[in-house]
């Protein structure tokens, strides 16, 4: 079995440009995902059974089906309907870029909502009772006590979720986007050297994951620095 390093060097710049799109997709999707996750997470712990069931159905669907199916549903599935094609959303949905972001954001939104729910339920009872004793309203309680604490508790799990999303973003290549994997597949269509090019792409993914893992640990340390003061 032969390994052509020259190919890897020749095509590395193009792979890097694909990696740029990968990072962009992840950044936008995770921001939109958080905007979905916060209300859904709050609905999951709400007192209203309707809100609880609605949010549960959403979370169940997006955590229970493969991301690949979700992407196909958004990209190819929605365009099956005349109504979608005539709607105001079509200028966005006709672009694979936005379809990928919609699918990724809905997917990560469901996972993040569950992380948030778990973290909110893990906030110590005593802190909530203390805040209540101060006379905080429910809204204030969530804003000042539960959410800030939940972010600290859920942060490591959220770090893992972002890593999962980086890996999931490879599926953007199935809807014509030239992300890192899409670029690799296009290069392979010319060079017929899948092993070399995929391994090179794999290394770039590893580098992205490594940098992000580091960043998440940094932020985690920063979020929890008040704990260090306590122990000091």
């Amino acid at each position: 079995m032969s390994f052509d390093l020259g190919l890897v060097i020749e095509y590395f710049p193009r792979l890097l440009s694909g990696a740029g799109l990968t990072v962009e997709l992840i950044a936008i999707s995770s921001l939109v995902g958080i905007c979905i996750a916060v209300p859904v997470g709050l609905m999951r712990v709400s007192a209203s059974p309707t809100l609880r069931n609605l949010s549960l159905a959403y979370v169940f669907f997006f955590r229970g089906t493969p991301l690949l199916i979700q992407i196909f549903l958004v990209y190819y599935g929605l365009s099956q309907f005349e109504a979608v094609r005539n709607s105001v959303l079509w200028p966005f949905l006709r672009q694979p870029y936005w379809c990928a972001i919609v699918a990724f954001a809905l997917n990560t939104g469901a996972y993040t909502a569950e992380i948030l729910r778990g973290a909110m339920q893990a906030v110590p009872r005593g802190e909530i009772e203390a805040a209540r004793a101060f006379g905080m309203s429910t809204a204030l309680l969530f804003r000042r006590v539960i959410l800030p604490r939940a972010v600290r508790i859920g942060w490591p799990a959220y770090g893992n979720e972002v890593i999962f999303m980086i890996k999931g973003s490879a599926l953007a290549s199935t809807i014509t986007l030239l992300d890192l994997t899409g670029m690799a597949r296009t290069i392979i269509a010319k060079t017929y050297a899948p092993v070399e090019i995929f391994l090179a792409a794999g290394l770039i993914y590893l580098a992205i994951v490594f940098v992000l893992t580091r960043a998440f640990r940094r932020i985690e340390a920063r979020l929890n620095r008040y704990l260090l003061h306590e122990s000091a």
């Binding site: 190819y76 365009s79 099956q80 094609r85 006709r94 672009q95 694979p96 014509t176 296009t186």
Partner: peptide, 18 residues
């Protein structure tokens, strides 16, 4: 240029107006 995994997917997008 938009390139597709399968010709069938490409036709789906022609039909959809993409």
């Amino acid at each position: 240029v938009k390139l597709y995994d399968t010709q069938e997917n490409a036709f789906l997008d022609l039909e959809a107006g993409r």
